[in-house]
Computed example of a mutant assay.
Amino acid sequence: MSYTLMLLRRTLIASIIILCANSLLAQTNVQDQKFPSISLNPFSDSSRHWYGIRDDHNIINPSFNQPKYKESEITNIADNILLYQRDNGGWPKNYDVQAILTPQQADSLIKTKGMVHTTFDNSTTYTHVDYLAQVYTITHIEKYKNACKKGIRFIISAQYPNGGWPQYYPLEKGYSRHITFNDGAYIGVMEVLRKIVNNDANYSFIDNKLRKEIEVAYQKGIDCILKTQIVDKGRLTVWCQQHDEVTLKPAWARAFEPPCICNGESVGIVLFLMDIKNPDQKIINSVQSAVKWFQESKILNTRVETIKAAPEKSNWRTSTTDRVVVIDSLAPPIWTRYYEQETDRPMFSDRNSKILYSLSEVSRERRSGYGWYTYAPQDVLKKYPKWQKKWASNENILEK
């Protein structure tokens, strides 16, 4: 072989080696790269349920000392989210996206891709969509963008023509068909849609066609919020935890969650409305009415104390604490979660659906295991003066 041919051959081999090396570098596992962390707080409710409440209906249950990815291992966590995502674009609830799954656990999830028991309950689906959008913005890995868009389409598909969202979609039997404000489900969906409508950088990949569909869904969502605000004795108040999907009236959910004026979930709704840019008069009136209700329904000289108690086992849980209402002249304003329509009386209930009017009447399991009182309306009252000066400068509800 001539020297020239040998030189050409060596040059060619060297070029191939360089090309292969560059290809290998390009294909380096992204999990080995360092990325900024993304908060996993939005998933804490589902994670808490997975570890804390054994559910034989779960596809997988946690193993002993289940290992977890670090919060900075965002592609591993995003891959978990893709694994949990169903073929219809939604997610099941009560799993830990941070868990390092065993091959058997992963295989079990893959086999359930075709199931349609998908939900917005316990901060599900909309949180997954938002996480994937952030991961795609950081990594530009196409599969995360595609899964995110699939989740957004699921959200749009799940919306009722009247603008509300059920707890589960596709629709199932029972109260999960109701428009669900409970646990922030409705507002969680709306906050993700608002990010897109407001051109949040993490959603810059959304194409114009999908963006227009989202804008329509978002506006319908606002309209439904306004239509479901409870009119009681001729005045606008706030909302119930869930509203009938046809009549839009307050509706029963679980046995101890009656149709009523519900201060707990209403706070998130009002705070959402207060953050709307350039609100129209309907939104302004809605906020004004809700603030007035919060002001009028506050309870003074009262606090709720959690005390230790002898273990008491029930069909649902073992209670080791109790709650008692204490008179305290120094206590800040407090509100009950429920108020009875027509009478405005603080209202409670139990697993037998009986309507009660004091916490002491509630069975201990529910008395200590449910949030019957709340300080949350104070967040609205605190934010109101600044909002009022900007959008309702001629009418300060709190000064009346």
Rank of each mutant, 00 (worst) to 15 (best):
I261P: 03
S176M: 07
N394A: 14
Y51W: 06
K113C: 04
A133W: 05
T374C: 07
P259L: 15
T118V: 13
Y373C: 03
D45H: 05
D200E: 09
M274T: 08
R366I: 01
L171T: 06
G90T: 09
R351L: 13
G164S: 01
G264F: 07
E71Y: 06
Y126A: 08
E172V: 12
N315H: 04
S297V: 06
M347K: 04
G151Y: 05
R54E: 14
I38F: 10
P92T: 12
K68V: 12
L271G: 04
T124W: 01
I214H: 05
I355P: 06
G89K: 06
F256W: 15
R323T: 06
N122E: 14
I16Y: 10
D55F: 12
A217M: 08
N80C: 08
F154K: 08
R86H: 09
I77E: 10
L356Y: 10
M6A: 12
L210W: 02
R303C: 09
V380F: 12
T28F: 04
G268E: 11
K249L: 11
A21S: 15
Q98G: 10
A331Y: 13
E73S: 08
N352G: 07
I13R: 10
T320H: 13
R367D: 01
G163H: 00
V189G: 08
D328S: 09
L171N: 07
D207G: 06
F154Q: 02
D96T: 05
K389G: 05
R345M: 02
D350S: 15
D244M: 04
I18K: 08
N76S: 13
K227Q: 15
I284Q: 07
K400V: 10
I334E: 01
S2H: 11
R10K: 14
N58H: 13
S363P: 14
S108V: 00
Q341V: 15
T119A: 03
Q33W: 11
L300T: 15
E142S: 11
R54I: 15
I276H: 03
N315R: 05
W316L: 06
W293N: 12
I152N: 00
M115F: 05
V287C: 06
Y338P: 06
D275H: 03
C240N: 15
L132Y: 03
I60E: 03
N22D: 08
A331D: 11
E257H: 11
R345F: 05
R366H: 04
R303L: 13
L226W: 11
A217K: 04
T180C: 09
I284D: 07
T112S: 14
I16V: 14
N394E: 15
G89I: 11
L226N: 10
P161C: 12
Y51A: 00
K382I: 14
I156R: 08
V97G: 00
W239D: 07
G371M: 05
D183T: 02
S2A: 10
T318L: 06
